[in-house]
C-alpha cells in the first residue's frame, strides 16, 4: 500500500508548486485528492460518489485559485483543511437551496404509448450510423456529445475538463443533438 506523505513533504511540494514546478504540483494534487475524498466522505456520508467527486474537484480548483495565500512558514494541512471545510459548507448550502426548490414527483413512465410521442425513435437504433454521424460533427460539438452523453460527465466536470463554460457546453450539446437528429433522419 502506498505510504502517505507527511505534512513537511506536502509543505515542500506546495512551496515548489508556488514557484511553478509542474511535477511537484501534480504530485501534490495526486497526493491530496484521496485525502480530500476521505474527508468529504467522512463529513457527508449521505452523498453519492459523483457528488463527493464534485466537491473534491471544487476544493482542487479553489486551492489552485488561492494558492498564493499559502504561507511558506506555516504547515500545509491546516491551510488545506480550512479551504475544504469552507467548500464543504458552501456545498451544504447549495444542497439545501436545491432541495428547497426541488419538487418530488412519482416515477412516471419516461414515454407514453401514443405514437405521437414516439416519432422517430426507431431511426436512432443503428449504433453504427450514430457513431458515424458523431464523427462528422465539428470538434466542439463532438467533444460535448462524448463527455456529456457517452461518458455521462456532469456539466461542471465537462466544462472544467474542456476548458469552456457551462453555457458554451449547453449550446454545443443542443446544436450537436439537432445536427445528429437531422443527419439520422435523412440517412434513414
Amino acid at each position: 500500500m502506498k505510504q502517505q506523505l507527511d505534512d513537511r513533504a506536502l509543505t515542500t511540494l506546495m512551496q515548489a508548486a508556488q514557484a511553478g514546478d509542474t511535477q511537484a504540483y501534480v504530485q501534490l494534487l495526486k497526493e491530496i485528492a484521496p485525502r480530500l475524498r476521505q474527508i468529504v466522505r467522512g463529513q457527508r456520508r449521505f452523498l453519492k460518489s459523483e457528488d463527493i467527486e464534485d466537491i473534491v474537484q471544487d476544493v482542487l480548483l479553489s486551492l489552485h485559485a488561492v494558492r498564493a495565500t499559502y504561507d511558506r512558514q506555516r504547515p500545509f494541512m491546516p491551510w488545506l483543511i480550512a479551504i475544504t471545510r469552507n467548500r464543504l459548507a458552501d456545498a451544504a448550502r447549495r444542497y439545501t437551496r436545491r432541495a428547497a426548490h426541488e419538487v418530488q414527483v412519482e416515477n412516471l413512465p419516461v414515454t407514453f404509448s401514443d405514437e405521437g410521442t414516439n416519432i422517430g425513435s426507431g431511426e436512432y437504433r443503428d449504433p453504427e450510423a450514430l457513431s458515424q454521424a458523431i464523427r462528422t460533427l465539428p470538434p466542439g460539438q463532438r467533444d460535448a456529445i462524448e463527455m456529456l452523453k457517452l461518458r455521462e460527465m456532469s456539466l461542471k466536470a465537462a466544462a472544467a475538463a474542456s476548458g469552456t463554460s457551462v453555457g458554451a457546453l449547453k449550446v454545443s450539446i443542443h446544436r450537436a443533438m439537432a445536427t445528429l437528429r437531422k443527419v439520422l433522419i435523412k440517412a434513414s
Partner: peptide, 20 residues
C-alpha cells in the same frame, strides 16, 4: 478519470505565484 484530468489541466497551466 475526471479528477485526474482536472489535475493534469491544473498542472499544465500552473504558473509561479508570489505568496501573499
Amino acid at each position: 478519470m475526471d479528477t485526474e484530468k482536472l489535475i493534469a489541466r491544473l498542472a499544465e497551466v500552473v504558473e509561479p505565484v508570489r505568496p501573499l
